[in-house]
C-alpha cells in the first residue's frame, strides 16, 4: 500500500476503502457518537492505569497496559475471550486480589494517587470505583429497596434521606417506573434485565466516581440490553464508565473511546486505543481492523 501513497487518486480510494471497512454500519454507529474532549468535563484527574501486569499463579494474564480514563467518558474494552479485559478492569478496583493466586505489577492512579500504595484502604477504593458484574447478582435475602441501599449498610455510610436516594438511584438506572410499586418485594422475582439495572442502581447508591461494567448485557435479551445502554448514556455525564463487551455494536453505540485487547498465545495486551469512531472506521493496527470487521474473533 505504501507505494501508492504518492498517487492522490489511489490515496482517495484507499480512504474510501477504509471508511467501508465496517460495512455493517459499525463505523456509521460510531461516527454518530462524538467523543467528549478529554478534560472538557473536569471532575478530577480520573483514573489512569500505568504499566499494569496481572498474573494468576504462574500464568501471565495481562502485560503492560497503560490507559487513561477521562472523567465523564465511556470507554469500551473489546477483544476476544481470554485476552485479559475482565482481568484488567478487576485491577482497577482491586477486585483482582479476590482470587487467591492473583498477582499484579504497575500502578493504578485514582485522582492521582496509587490505589495499590501501602496503607490504602481497599474498601474506600471500591466505594469510589463501583462494579457491575456479568451475571445479575442482586442479594437474594433482600428486597428491591434493601438491595439498592445495601452499599450504605455494607460500607457503613450515613444517608440523610434514604427514600430520596432510593428513588434517585433507581431513576438513574432506568428502573424506578417499573418497580416503584413493589419496592418491598424480593429482587429475585425481577426479570434478568431488571435485575441487572437493580445491580446498577445498587452500585450508584454509594456514589462512585467510576463504574466498571464487566459484560453487563451478555446474559440479557436485546430489549433489556437496549435499556441498559440507555442507562449508560444517561450516567456517562456524571460517572466515568468502563465497559467490557463482546458486542461490537454495543461498543460503537455507547462508548466515546474503545480499547482493543488481544492475546496471541501469551499474556493479553492492549493493541490499540482511540476514539470509538476511529477504531471502527480507521483502525491503525491491522489486528484491530481484522477484529472489528469480523475477520476473526
Amino acid at each position: 500500500m505504501a507505494e501508492n501513497e504518492n498517487e492522490p487518486i489511489e490515496n482517495e480510494r484507499e480512504n474510501m476503502d477504509k471508511t467501508e471497512i465496517a460495512p455493517s454500519s459499525l463505523a456509521g454507529i460510531a461516527a454518530g457518537h462524538q467523543p467528549k474532549t478529554p478534560g472538557s468535563n473536569v471532575m478530577g484527574v480520573g483514573l489512569e492505569a500505568r504499566g499494569v501486569h496481572a498474573w494468576f499463579g504462574e500464568k501471565h494474564a495481562l502485560s503492560n497496559v497503560s490507559l487513561d480514563f477521562w472523567p465523564g467518558t465511556v470507554t469500551a474494552l473489546i477483544g476476544p475471550s481470554g485476552c485479559g479485559k475482565s482481568t484488567f478492569i478487576r485491577t482497577l478496583n482491586r477486585m483482582h486480589e479476590f482470587i487467591p493466586t492473583a498477582a499484579m505489577a504497575g500502578e493504578v492512579l485514582l485522582n492521582g494517587e496509587d490505589i495499590y500504595a501501602p496503607g490504602v484502604d481497599v474498601t474506600k477504593i471500591r466505594l469510589k470505583v463501583g462494579m457491575v458484574f456479568q451475571k445479575p447478582n442482586p442479594f437474594p435475602s433482600m428486597t428491591i429497596a434493601e438491595n439498592v441501599l445495601a452499599g450504605l449498610k455494607l460500607a457503613q455510610l450515613k444517608s440523610e434521606n434514604k427514600d430520596d436516594l432510593l428513588e434517585e438511584c433507581l431513576e438513574r438506572a432506568g428502573l424506578w417506573s417499573e418497580v416503584k410499586d413493589r419496592l418491598n418485594t424480593y429482587g429475585g422475582a425481577l426479570s434478568g434485565g431488571q435485575q441487572q439495572r437493580l445491580c446498577i442502581a445498587r452500585s450508584l447508591a454509594v456514589r462512585p466516581q467510576v463504574l466498571l461494567m464487566d459484560e453487563p448485557c451478555s446474559a440479557l435479551d436485546p430489549g433489556s440490553t437496549l435499556k441498559i445502554e440507555e442507562t449508560i448514556s444517561h450516567l456517562s455525564s456524571s460517572v466515568t464508565i468502563i465497559i467490557v463487551t463482546h458486542n461490537m455494536q454495543q461498543a460503537a453505540r455507547v462508548s466515546d473511546y474503545t480499547a482493543f485487547f488481544l492475546s496471541a498465545g501469551g499474556p493479553g495486551q492492549m493493541v490499540e486505543v482511540g476514539p470509538t469512531n476511529e477504531i471502527f472506521s480507521r483502525p491503525k493496527d491491522k489486528r484491530t481492523e481484522d477484529y472489528v470487521t469480523g475477520r476473526f474473533g
Binding site: A150, L154, C199
Partner: peptide, 8 residues
C-alpha cells in the same frame, strides 16, 4: 464479590 465491590 458484589458485597465486597460495594465497599463492604
Amino acid at each position: 464479590e458484589a458485597g465486597v465491590a460495594l465497599g463492604g
